[in-house]
Deep mutational scan, measured.
Amino acid sequence: TSIVNVSSSLNVRSSASTSSKVIGSLSGNTKVTIVGEEGAFYKIEYKGSHGYVAKEYI
C-alpha cells in the first residue's frame, strides 16, 4: 500500500500514457495498492479493476 502525494487530485488513467482516457481521480493522502508498473506509471487497484497513475505522485 502506498499513499497519493498531491495537494489537489491525481488522475487515474485507463493505460500508462498521459494521453490515455481519465477514468477517475484520487485525492491526496489516499491509500492505493500497486499491482505493477509500466514506464513512468504504476498500475493500481481501482474500483474493482485497474488504473494507472504517474509514479512521481505516489
Rank of each mutant, 00 (worst) to 15 (best):
Gly51Gln: 01
Gly51Cys: 04
Ser27Tyr: 09
Ser14Arg: 09
Ala40Trp: 07
Val12Lys: 00
Val6Pro: 09
Ser49Lys: 10
Phe41His: 03
Leu10His: 06
Thr33Trp: 09
Gly36Tyr: 03
Tyr46Glu: 01
Asn11Arg: 12
Ser8Trp: 09
Lys43Trp: 05
Gly39Ile: 02
Asn5Met: 12
His50Asp: 06
Glu56Met: 10
Glu38Val: 09
Gly39Cys: 06
Asn29Met: 12
Ala40Ser: 10
Lys47Val: 06
Leu26His: 02
Ala16Tyr: 03
Ser14Trp: 07
His50Leu: 09
Glu56Phe: 08
Lys21Leu: 11
Ser9Thr: 11
Ile23Glu: 01
Val22Ile: 14
Ser15His: 14
His50Val: 14
Val53His: 00
Arg13Met: 15
Ser19Met: 10
Ser20Gln: 02
Lys43His: 04
Ser7Thr: 13
Lys43Ile: 15
Lys43Cys: 08
Glu37Met: 10
Tyr42Asn: 03
Val4Met: 09
Lys43Glu: 07
Gly28Asp: 08
Thr1Ala: 13
Glu56Ala: 11
Val4Pro: 07
Val22Pro: 05
Glu37Asn: 05
Val32Arg: 01
Gly24Pro: 00
Val53Phe: 02
Ser49Arg: 11
Val4Gly: 14
Thr1Pro: 12
Val6Leu: 11
Glu37Ala: 08
Thr30Phe: 09
Gly48Ala: 06
Leu10Cys: 15
Ser9Met: 11
Gly24Ser: 02
Glu37Cys: 11
Tyr52Trp: 11
Gly39Pro: 01
Ser15Met: 10
Gly51Phe: 04
Thr18Ala: 14
Ala40Lys: 10
Ser17Glu: 07
Val12Tyr: 00
Tyr57Ala: 13
Val4Phe: 05
Ser19Ile: 08
Ser8Ala: 12
Ser27Ile: 12
Lys55Cys: 04
Ser15Pro: 01
His50Glu: 06
Val6Tyr: 04
Ile34Ser: 01
Tyr46Cys: 04
Leu26Ser: 01
Tyr57Gly: 12
Glu38Thr: 06
Ile44Lys: 00
Leu10Ala: 14
Ile34Trp: 05
Ser17Trp: 03
Asn11Leu: 15
Asn29Pro: 10
Thr18Glu: 13
Tyr52Lys: 00
Ala40Glu: 15
Glu56Trp: 07
Ser15Arg: 11
Ser19Ala: 12
Glu38Arg: 05
Tyr46Val: 02
Glu45Arg: 07
Lys31Tyr: 13
Val35Gln: 04
Gly28Glu: 11
Ser15Gly: 13
Lys47Asn: 14
Gly48Asn: 08
Ser9Pro: 13
Lys31Ile: 14
Gly36Ser: 07
Thr30Ala: 11
Thr1His: 13
Ser14Asp: 11
Lys43Arg: 09
Glu56Tyr: 08
Glu56Asn: 07
Lys47Ile: 06
Thr30Asn: 06
Glu56Pro: 04
Ser2Trp: 10
Ser19Tyr: 07
Tyr57Asp: 15
Val6Phe: 06
Ser2Ala: 15
Lys47Pro: 02
Ala40Asn: 13
Lys21Thr: 12
Glu38Tyr: 08
Val35Cys: 07
Lys21Cys: 10
Ser8Phe: 11
Ser27Lys: 14
Ser14Leu: 14
Ser19Gln: 11
Val53Leu: 05
Gly36Arg: 03
Ser9Trp: 10
Gly48Thr: 06
Gly28Gln: 13
Ser9His: 13
Lys47Trp: 06
Asn5Ile: 15
Ser9Arg: 14
Asn11Trp: 10
Thr1Trp: 03
Tyr42Lys: 02
Gly36Met: 04
Ser7Lys: 13
Tyr52Leu: 01
Gly24Asp: 03
Lys55Thr: 03
Lys31Cys: 14
Val4Gln: 08
Val12Cys: 05
Thr18Tyr: 14
Ser19Val: 08
Ala54Glu: 15
Asn29His: 11
Thr30Met: 11
Leu26Val: 08
Lys21Ile: 11
Leu10Ile: 15
Thr33Ile: 13
Asn5Ala: 10
Glu45Tyr: 07
Thr30Lys: 05
Lys21Tyr: 07
Gly24Phe: 09
Ser20Met: 02
Ile23Tyr: 01
Glu37Trp: 09
Val6His: 10
Lys21Pro: 15
Ser25Asn: 11
Thr1Arg: 13
Lys31Asp: 07
Glu38Gly: 02
Ile34Ala: 01
Ala40Thr: 08
Tyr46Asp: 00
Ser9Tyr: 10
Asn29Arg: 09
Ile3His: 10
Gly36Asn: 04
Leu26Ala: 02
Lys21Ser: 12
Ser49Gln: 11
Thr1Ser: 11
Asn5Pro: 09
Ala40Gly: 12
Ala54Ser: 10
Thr33His: 10
Val53Pro: 00
Gly36Ile: 02
Ser20His: 04
Ser25Tyr: 14
Ile3Pro: 07
Thr18Gly: 10
Ser49Val: 11
Val35Asn: 02
Lys31Glu: 10
Ile3Asn: 07
Val32Phe: 07
Glu45Ala: 08
Val12Gln: 00
Ser20Trp: 03
Gly24Ala: 05
Lys31Asn: 10
Ile44Asn: 00
Val22Lys: 05
Asn29Asp: 09
Gly39Lys: 05
Val6Ser: 12
Lys43Asn: 02
Ile3Tyr: 09
Ala40Asp: 15
Asn11Glu: 15
Lys21His: 10
Gly28Pro: 15
Ser27Thr: 11
Leu10Ser: 06
Thr30Leu: 07
Ala54Pro: 15
Ile44Cys: 03
Val53Tyr: 01
Asn29Thr: 08
Ala16Pro: 14
Val12Phe: 01
Val4Asp: 06
Ser25Phe: 14
Lys31Phe: 12
Ser8Gln: 12
Glu38His: 07
Tyr52Asp: 00
Ser20Gly: 14
His50Pro: 05
Phe41Leu: 01
Ile44Asp: 02
Leu26Gly: 01
Ser17Phe: 05
Ser25Cys: 15
Asn29Glu: 08
Ser14Thr: 08
Gly36Pro: 00
Ser8Asp: 12
Val32Thr: 03
Ile58Glu: 03
Ala40Leu: 11
Ile58Asn: 03
Ala16Arg: 02
Lys47Phe: 10
Tyr57Lys: 09
Tyr42Glu: 02
Val6Ile: 14
Tyr52Ser: 00
Ser15Lys: 10
Ser27Asp: 14
Thr18Asp: 13
Ser15Leu: 08
Ser19Glu: 12
Ala40Tyr: 08
Ser19Asp: 13
Lys47Gly: 12
Ile44Val: 06
Ser25Asp: 06
Tyr57Val: 08
Thr33Gln: 08
Ser2Arg: 15
Ser15Trp: 06
Glu38Ala: 07
Leu26Trp: 02
Glu45Leu: 13
Thr33Tyr: 09
Ser20Ile: 01
Gly39Phe: 04
Ser19Trp: 06
Asn11Val: 15
Ile58Thr: 05
Ile3Ala: 09
Tyr57Arg: 08
Thr33Met: 09
Ser7Leu: 12
Glu37His: 06
Ser25Glu: 11
Gly24His: 03
Thr33Asn: 10
Lys43Met: 10
Gly36His: 04
Tyr42Trp: 10
Ser9Ile: 13
Ser20Glu: 02
Glu56Val: 10
Glu38Phe: 07
Ser49Asp: 08
Ser25Val: 15
Lys55Tyr: 02
Val12Asp: 02
Arg13Asp: 01
Glu45Phe: 11
Gly51Lys: 01
Glu56Arg: 11
Asn29Leu: 12
Lys43Ala: 05
Val35Pro: 00
Gly28Tyr: 13
Gly39Ser: 04
Ser15Ala: 13
Ser14His: 10
Lys55His: 03
Gly24Ile: 04
Glu37Lys: 05
Gly39Leu: 05
Gly24Cys: 05
Thr1Gln: 12
Ser2Phe: 10
Ser2Cys: 15
Ser49Glu: 10
Val22Leu: 07
Gly28Met: 14
Gly39Thr: 03
Gly36Thr: 03
Thr18Ile: 13
Phe41Cys: 04
Val32Cys: 05
Ile23Trp: 02
Lys31Trp: 14
Leu26Pro: 00
Ile58His: 03
Tyr46Leu: 03
Val6Asn: 08
Glu56Gln: 10
Ser15Ile: 06
Tyr57Pro: 05
Asn5Tyr: 06
Ser9Val: 12
Ser14Ile: 13
His50Thr: 10
Lys55Asn: 02
Lys43Val: 11
Ile34Lys: 01
Lys43Gln: 07
Ile23Ala: 01
Phe41Asp: 03
Ser2Asp: 09
Glu56Thr: 07
Ser8Pro: 09
Ser8Ile: 14
Tyr52Ala: 00
Ser2Met: 15
Val4Lys: 08
Ile34Met: 03
Lys55Trp: 03
Val6Cys: 15
Ala54Met: 12
Glu38Asn: 06
Val4Thr: 10
Gly28Thr: 11
Ser9Gln: 11
Phe41Pro: 00
Leu10Lys: 04
Glu37Tyr: 06
Thr30Ile: 09
Gly24Lys: 02
